[in-house]
Nucleic acid binder design. Structure first.
Length: 588
RNA sequence: GCCCCCGUAGCUCAGUGGAUAGAGCACCGGCCUCCGGAGCCGGAAGCGUAGGUUCGAUUCCUACCGGGGGUACCA
């Protein structure tokens, strides 16, 4: 778990002093495990060391707490040390701490909340990777928002990130996809196994526009057959491999490849619209099949002695690493399986990154064991392969399920939803909920601009600060620089609460990154917004229009301090939203 | 059958060993001569059940009950 003392020099010092007190009191040295009390009255930080020492030291925890306090020499940033409850040692900051914090935030600017690491790792974050045989559905929006935000969090926590999309553009499905396009383009009926839906027709139209009708009727190499005597050309089909008897296999394959690229671009466009931009679109066909990487990987697995032949097929011994059964790498007919491509891809990525992160939907949870086992078989440390499973999305409208089946017209694609409600709403809705919970995405609820959408609450706080600062400028409010402001005047409970909340961003970011828990940051932003709204309600910056000169003069010094506090709050809010890739608007 | 996830307020969700379990929505009652009421303040309301581990359990373990998903020489 992220440690608070790593993000704050004052806490680092405090941590060390508590350890020193334990030594001085002849107590076993345990980690102080500084934590934030839930209740503000208990102070700013607390240590539970005394509670945890009770057993080994065989003493009453309150006595131990007293010993700690007796030997603890705190710096003057700590104003109060007290013992409470069963043996908590509570610590309260002097006001100076909060004043420094405001200055720290303003000095750090956009970097406030980010941390650097002495030895950053390169983390490959793969997410979405939906088959490019159809448009993204709403559920994929969850992986887009979450994967992207997790990537941003990992970066903010000091590591390097590559965002990657694995394009499944090889194999059986591409031929079938090609056949589907050809059949639709030539007004023939689709078979049972074909892709259907509006998108197929759109791809067909796009291809017709760029390549002409011959694309669907003439094999890419010309077919070697000239039409003659008005006889239709017999398609050179591949029914043995499951091909449709009406479609030439070479045409299907060619159209499939072109169609996939059209679809991939559409996917790229909607993801871009959602603020998600990949560093790499990894083509299975180009990157693994055409380079021979699959064959090389299969050979390597043979050489490592982790593969064996049985029933004419080649199996990988994944059961040696916790899988339920060994997996087929090469079928008995000699074709490599999709799993073999997975292994090759794993190997490729491992050569480019220190850590491989996969975000998968719950419908893929069966992959976890075999993927981790495959990594182990390849000699990749299983700890360097992290697979997170997210639960699925229920698409609703007014509480009623919207069918997400493949049938034409019934699906609602991600681009339509993004168009309808906007990217901030879509992203935030997914990001504020944990990966382990099933998300209900109700189009009717999500379209409402109210507190049904907390994103507006947070954005409103940010817009409100901007409005406030604009009003100050318009009235010629002389705020001066923060160095000249007397921040010691910020003693109102709402001001204290706001400063305490702002101090929490770095730790929240670190924890959210570590746990891959975007909702932590979203909830933090909501809490901070609420704290600001309270401050706004209770603490005026500008004197009322009808104030007397005397009143105005009295309020001026504290107003200046509050002005800088508001600027700092805006910065923290903007940074939190920025990591979620949600806009922080100046007006709304 | 086996595997994974979930069960917290009427509803949607936070809270991965600490003190008095938190928000929003909905409901009830207050707050604008003044910087944006998309706001603020107050009220009522909850950890599925039964055991176990621990000084301490919503949190960890086991069983059970409910809900969701997965279990291919498919891609």
């Amino acid at each position: 778990m992220a440690r608070p003392e790593l993000f704050d020099p004052v806490l680092a010092d405090l941590d060390e002093r508590i350890r020193a007190a334990l030594r001085a009191a002849d107590l076993p040295e345990v980690d102080p495990e500084l934590e934030k009390p839930k209740i503000a009255e208990h102070g700013d930080w607390a240590t539970t060391a005394a509670l945890r020492l009770a057993k080994p030291a065989k003493r009453n925890p309150r006595e131990i707490a007293q010993l700690i306090v007796d030997h603890l020499q705190v710096s003057d940033v700590i104003e109060e040390v007290s013992i409470a409850g069963p043996g908590f040692v509570n610590l309260r900051f002097a006001h100076r701490y909060h004043e420094d914090l405001v200055r720290r935030v303003l000095a750090a600017g956009d970097d406030y909340g980010r941390t650097s690491k002495a030895e950053p790792r390169t983390v490959n974050v793969e997410f979405v990777s939906a088959n490019p045989t159809g448009p993204l559905h709403v559920g994929a929006g969850r992986w887009a928002a979450t994967g992207d935000a997790i990537a941003a969090l990992i970066e903010a926590a000091g590591d390097r990130v590559t965002r990657e999309y694995y394009v499944n553009d090889a194999g059986e499905q591409i031929r079938r996809f090609g056949e589907s396009i050809v059949l639709v383009a030539t007004d023939q009926e689709l078979g049972e196994a074909h892709y259907r839906g509006r998108a197929i027709g759109e791809v067909a139209d796009t291809l017709r526009a760029t390549h002409g009708d011959e694309l669907f009727t003439v094999p890419p190499d010309g077919g070697g057959v000239e039409p003659h005597d008005g006889q239709p050309i017999e398609p050179d089909t591949d029914e043995a491999a499951g091909g449709d008897p009406r479609v030439d296999a070479a045409i299907a394959a060619h159209v499939g490849v072109l169609g996939v690229e059209v679809m991939r671009q559409r996917i790229e466009a909607v993801l871009h619209e959602m603020g998600v931009d990949y560093d790499r679109w990894f083509s299975e066909r180009e990157g693994l099949h055409e380079t021979g990487a699959i064959d090389a990987t299969v050979q390597q697995l043979r050489d490592r002695g982790v593969a064996y032949d049985a029933d004419g097929a080649l199996f990988l011994r994944t059961t040696d690493h916790g899988d339920d059964k060994d997996r087929v790498l090469v079928r008995s007919d000699g074709r490599p399986t999709y799993f073999a491509a997975d292994c090759a891809y794993l190997r490729d990525k491992a050569s480019r990154a220190d850590q491989l992160f996969y975000l998968l939907g719950a419908d893929h949870h069966g992959y976890v064991a075999r993927l981790k086992a495959a990594a182990a078989c390849l000699g990749i440390a299983p700890d360097d392969v992290e697979i997170r499973i997210g639960q699925l999305v229920n698409l609703l409208r007014d509480g009623q399920p919207v069918r997400m089946s493949k049938r034409a017209g019934e699906t609602i694609d991600l681009d339509e939803v993004v168009e309808e409600v906007g990217t901030d709403v879509v992203r935030y809705h997914f990001l504020r909920q944990g990966l382990d919970t099933t998300v209900d995405f109700d189009l009717a609820v999500v379209a409402r601009q109210s507190m049904d959408n907390p994103v507006y609450y947070v954005q409103y706080a940010h817009a409100r600060i901007n409005s406030l600062l604009r009003a100050a400028d318009e009235r010629g409010f002389a705020h001066g620089s923060v160095d000249d402001a007397d921040l010691s005047l910020l003693v109102h409970p709402a001001e204290m609460e706001l400063m305490t909340a702002m101090a929490g961003l770095p730790l929240t970011v670190a924890e959210a990154a570590e746990l891959r828990a975007t909702q932590r940051l979203a909830r933090y932003a909501e809490d901070l917004a609420a704290t600001f709204h309270r401050f706004y309600t209770e603490c005026r910056i500008l004197a009322p229009a009808d104030a007397t000169d005397e009143e105005r003069a009295a309020a001026e010094a504290v107003g200046r301090a509050r002005y800088h506090l508001a600027v700092a709050a805006r910065q923290v809010l903007a940074n939190a939203l920025g990591l979620l890739r949600v806009r922080a608007p100046e007006r709304m």
